[in-house]
């Protein structure tokens, strides 16, 4: 079973993603902040991270940079934000994909599937 790490400060969104991806037969880990996410990534074998950009302690790009700097193999990351406009920030290119959050989860589900299969 593949493991997803979801980093998002919104309780409802975390819950939504957890239910959605568990129904898709993934193991789902949840983190509320950037540092929590980094901690979970360090302790567990993660196959893919769905990372929000606006987080209470740091932004998604910073999480991305710290992951790359940790020296460990970095799992693929899908940046998932309610905001567009970060597409041209350089560290965004460390992520597999940049998605705009939507209530329609099909795009996110398809992307997760594609990235994991590619891996």
């Amino acid at each position: 079973m593949k493991t997803l790490l979801i980093v998002d400060d919104e309780e409802n969104i975390r819950q939504l993603y957890k239910e959605t991806f568990e129904a898709e037969k993934y193991k789902v880990l949840l983190a509320q902040t950037g540092s929590e996410g980094l901690e979970l990534a360090a302790k567990n074998k993660i196959d893919l991270i769905i990372l929000d950009i606006r987080l209470p302690d740091m932004n998604g790009m910073e999480v991305l940079e710290r992951l790359s700097a940790s020296g460990k193999e970095v799992p693929p990351v899908i940046l998932n934000s309610a905001y567009s406009g970060y597409e041209h920030v350089s560290s965004v290119w460390l992520a597999e994909k940049y998605l705009i959050k939507s209530g329609d989860l099909s795009e996110l589900k398809n992307t997760v599937r594609a990235v994991i299969e590619k891996k």
Binding site: E10, I13, T20, A23, G103, L105
Partner: peptide, 17 residues
């Protein structure tokens, strides 16, 4: 618009479920 988007995602997502 941004403030409205996050709750809408939850509504839409759960409604689909």
């Amino acid at each position: 618009a941004h403030e409205m988007r996050t709750p809408l995602i939850s509504i839409g997502g759960f409604a689909e479920i």
